[in-house]
Amino acid sequence: MAYRFDFAPVFEHTDLLLAGAGFTLALTAVGAVLGIGLGVTGAVCRAWKLRPFDRMFGLYVEVIRNTPFLVQLFFIFFGLPALGVRMSEWQAAVLAMVVNLGAYSTEIIRAGIQATPRGQIEAAESLAMTRPQIFRHVVLRPALAKVWPALTSQVIIVMLGSAVCSQIATEELTFAANFIQSRNFRAFETYFVTTGMYFVMALAIRQLLVQLGQHYVVGRAR
């Protein structure tokens, strides 16, 4: 007998799916803001060789980029309590996402900072601007504008990667999908709908970041 598709048992749980999607988006939003903030900090330390922070960020970037996200998450949630650092699954999920995005965006933003023409920095210096002033007013916006597409992609990768947080019972979209599937045994339908939701969310985030970038970052900066 051929399999009969039935989506009704999935849509019974629409509220769960929407709540899960909402949490995924919230996780992503917090992770992206803090992660990019961390990335800007790391990029400045690396690009300007601020001892000893440049070395520390260098090590951090290598460790995070060369280990699996799931293991990073497990280390934070299951490993750190051994040192007395206990967190809720939400805190652990946010921290893991920030740490992960922070490492990748450090390298992305560093590339943007290092692409600043030397002459523009000299011009700013000759106007008696201090280093922090030069960074804030001359370097940062063109640097972010140059790497905005790469940062956008990285944020989406992190949003999709947050599915892994279901493994420590963070009640985001994948957790909701797993729960629904365990109730109705409609694996195809449940994950089909979930896949569609991730797809739409990814497209929406990309659009949002493109718009935000056009408006606040890229603007006329080239």
Binding site: P117, Q120, A123, S126, A128, V138, A145, R220, A221, R222
Partner: peptide, 21 residues
Amino acid sequence: RALRQKVGMVFQQFNLFPHLT
């Protein structure tokens, strides 16, 4: 910085900040 406030400089390559009018 006190020195630079007294000395202006114009460069061969203009070096305007591209994101500002």
